[in-house]
Amino acid sequence: MRKWRDAIWKALLLTALGGAVGLVNNSLKEPSRRLAWVTDYPEKDADGVVRATANGPAAAADSAPASATAGAPGEALADGLNDSLNTANSADWRRVELPPIDADAVAVEIDPLQTRRLWEEGAVFVDARRSSQYEEGHIRGARSIPIFETALLAERLDQLAFEVAQEEPVVVYCNGGDCQDSHMLAERLWSEGFMNVLIYRDGYPNWLKMGGAIAEGGAQ
């Protein structure tokens, strides 16, 4: 029927026009809101390779799943720090053991105390969340590599690879809980050759709860 053939042509034209609008819109966005043409997204829930650690003295107590492991010591520590830097508690991080480099694992999940120790020792921290969240507040000294801002990604990764040796520990984090950005970034870093990627599983909310040092403002 002529009526339908006509409609199909118009539908195709509208789709083409809409596609063009979408592409132009994307190319006019600021870099933090722009997508690259193609990105190799890591597969969802492919973190079977990422191992939760049971190294720290606090974590070693239970062999429960990672969420329980990470939750318990985190809360205990937060309670301690709420009494404003109780010396006994703040010294705990000095005694905590760091996981050994595991060449087979994409990344190793670490608990709040291990994270604290790495931070105190000046390890490289990378924030995997969106630029806007980073600007609102991030772990002091952390770099911003937002995994989903794909227009920025290659440049930021190159910069990291240029400044940081591949054996050095790199701690990635996002918002904890269901947030998968840090796991995705960890996979990406591993594929770029970084062999000591650590995931701060409880992420930024936990850092705030612990009273860790933060900074606000622009991406670096």
Partner: peptide
Amino acid sequence: IWAYDILPGQLINLQAMIMPGVELVI
């Protein structure tokens, strides 16, 4: 779109750029 885990990774960005434009135009 990535969270839906349906499209292959290489098509996600294209989809994310084009589909909203089509929605706006129609």
